[in-house]
Nucleic acid binder design. Structure first.
Length: 534
RNA sequence: GGUGGAUUCGUCUAACGGUUAGGACAAAAGAUUCUCAAUCUUUAAAUAGGAGUUCGAUUCUCCUAUCCACUACCA
């Protein structure tokens, strides 16, 4: 039995904000590690100095933390990447640019063993070759077929190679793919895959220009050094899996080679292709966990800022491409950790559905206690700092939350569900109101007022003058309903007249709810005012 | 173009080779004394196509189609 501790890593490149697909990859890694009591490591792959984006690394860490994903290794308690080795972080630094000195000797090891060679072709020369091949409807690739006619240490005399190595710095080290060999691979999600090396090209492993390795070298070396047991990454890496297998073999690390799992991509909600930032802008949903402002000042919305709960976000993400085979859809992080299994990860790409994402948040919102919601509501109200008509007490907000939470997807919906709580009736569009303010509605209004006045019920301690107790709401509702029924009035007309008058576009609440929130006196004041003005 | 991967209701997905192909989101209809929201009830909705293997195929094999990824001194 393999008793080795399970160790996985999430290794993003800090080229911008972390995409929700990246969060899903991180999440699956985390779940897979945690269910076996293993380690989840964060490593930053910043070997491309040209694409480095300031702030992206912090963004990645903050995003994971918002989701409740805390790496065991790589990130300290303050949320900074670790650079100095310690007991907790033995493999530091976790930023590849800081591991620069490590890679050259491994590249050299490959050259010495005949698994790699120096290549001196300039980018322009190769570019020209590609263009030329393209013009002839062919594809140029640096491989077994072409490398013997290109400028490299396989074709050039030894002394010239030495001279070029010493006097120039725009050379690279390339992997020398074996000829006509079938690489047999195993993927935890897709099963057996095989590929012939003749279809592969000799990838650059190391660049003299910036003294940095490319992804392939750095990745394999670091995974080995960090004792990674399972590599769970995006499907876009599947084509380079044979190279990675060969690299492990070339280094003589085949016996400790990690197992691989390639996750399918997240697809856009409509049309073709993978989910991109543009889809979010176009269709009105976030593709990033947190808000992000780029160097040009362009703002990308975030799930956090849009009012999503992190629990709902990761729940939604977890089920996009995985499910436990039962009909349960709502899971805590702990449940996900227990139930997750790589065999149940779906092979095909998952189209992202923003509607379902909202639904998840609604489910989580409903699970919150009224007290929690009241607190969130209060924060929200303070952030608006509006000149609202009434200031509600914590107790009122709590009661209110309980009544409207069934109707909301997000805490921000609270504002639109009951705007009459905060604003004067006069601000609503009179045209809309007038439409429902029919003569028969006007005619019956005095009786409605009388009935409201006559309702006798318990009052809350907080505000005995105005607010009936919560349990009185059905009583009020019933009383009004019976009045209307007795007289054969059109309930809809009355309801609409009242509701629209002081609710504007608000939906879903009954008259009794409104009276309850406003207090009886306030409700009556508004109704009288409505009768007078219209 | 080449290589690899994928293909079940509109969407996410379930179904040891044997089910009336199940659930959820979205949609539609009805109820809730017009409407809207919520809720309840109900409805509609799928195995990409074609061959094979098999008593039997959504499931295994092959072909075709479609989609996706890769094809950089990017990750």
């Amino acid at each position: 039995m393999d008793q080795k501790k399970r160790r996985v890593r999430f290794a993003p490149s800090p080229t911008g904000p972390l995409h929700m697909g990246g969060v899903r990859t991180a999440l699956y890694n985390y779940l897979f590690a945690k269910q076996a009591g293993g380690d989840f490591i964060l490593r930053i792959e910043d070997t491309d100095s040209n694409r480095f984006v300031p702030g992206a690394e912090k963004y990645i860490i903050d995003s994971l933390r918002w989701c409740g994903i805390y790496p065991d290794e790589g990130v300290d308690a303050e949320g900074n990447l670790v650079s100095v080795p310690s007991e907790r972080h033995p493999h530091a630094p976790y930023r590849q640019s800081e591991r620069k000195p490590i890679y050259r000797k491994y590249a050299q090891q490959l050259i010495d063993a005949g698994w790699a060679y120096y290549a001196f072709d300039s980018a322009e020369e190769l570019d020209a070759k590609r263009k030329e091949a393209e013009a002839n409807k062919q594809t140029f690739s640096y491989n077994h077929a072409s490398r013997n006619s290109l400028k490299n240490s396989l074709t050039l005399p030894e002394d010239e190679v030495k001279k070029l190595l010493e006097t120039t710095d725009n050379w690279t080290i390339r992997f020398k793919n074996p000829e006509n060999r079938t690489v047999e691979m195993d993927d935890m999600i897709r099963g057996h895959i095989s590929m012939n090396t003749n279809t592969l090209d000799d990838k650059v492993l190391w660049k003299a220009a910036d003294q940095l390795p490319t992804y392939h070298l750095a990745n394999i070396v670091d995974d080995h050094l960090m004792e990674i047991t399972h590599v769970i990454r995006g499907e876009e890496w599947l084509p380079s899996l044979p190279l990675h297998y060969l690299l492990y073999e070339a280094f003589g690390w085949a016996d400790t080679q990690p197992r691989f799992a390639h996750l399918s991509l997240l697809l856009k909600p409509d049309g073709k292709g993978k989910l991109s930032k543009r889809d979010g802008d176009r269709l009105g949903f976030p593709v990033f966990p947190l808000r992000w402002v780029n160097a040009q000042g362009e703002v990308s919305r975030g799930y956090r800022e849009d009012g999503y709960y992190p629990q709902a976000f990761i729940n939604m993400l977890a089920l996009l491409g995985w499910n436990p085979g039962t009909e349960q859809e709502i899971f805590t992080l702990e449940e996900l950790t227990q139930l997750f299994s790589m065999e149940k990860v779906v092979k095909s790409g998952a189209r992202f559905n923003p509607e379902k994402a909202k639904w998840f948040n609604q489910e989580y919102l409903r699970m919150r206690s009224n007290e929690q919601l009241a607190e969130e509501f209060e924060v929200l109200l303070q952030s608006f700092n509006s000149d609202r008509e009434r200031n509600l007490t914590k107790a009122e907000l709590t009661e209110l939350s309980g009544l409207i939470k069934e109707r909301a997807h997000f805490i921000t919906d609270f504002l639109t569900i009951c705007p009459y709580i905060f604003s004067a009736p006069t601000q609503y569009d009179e045209k809309d109101t007038r439409k429902f303010w029919t003569d028969d509605a006007k005619a019956i209004m005095p009786q409605v007022i009388a009935r409201i006045e006559s309702i006798d019920c318990k009052y809350t301690v907080d505000c005995p003058e105005h607010l009936p107790a919560a349990e009185a709401v059905p009583q009020i509702e019933e009383s009004l309903t019976s009045l209307i029924t007795e007289n054969g009035w059109k309930m809809g007309a009355v309801m609409n007249a009242l509701r629209l008058f002081f609710v504007g576009q608000a939906k879903g609440l009954g008259i009794a709810d409104i009276i309850y929130y406003l207090g009886r006196k306030e409700a009556l004041r508004r109704i009288r005012k409505a009768v007078e003005t219209l």
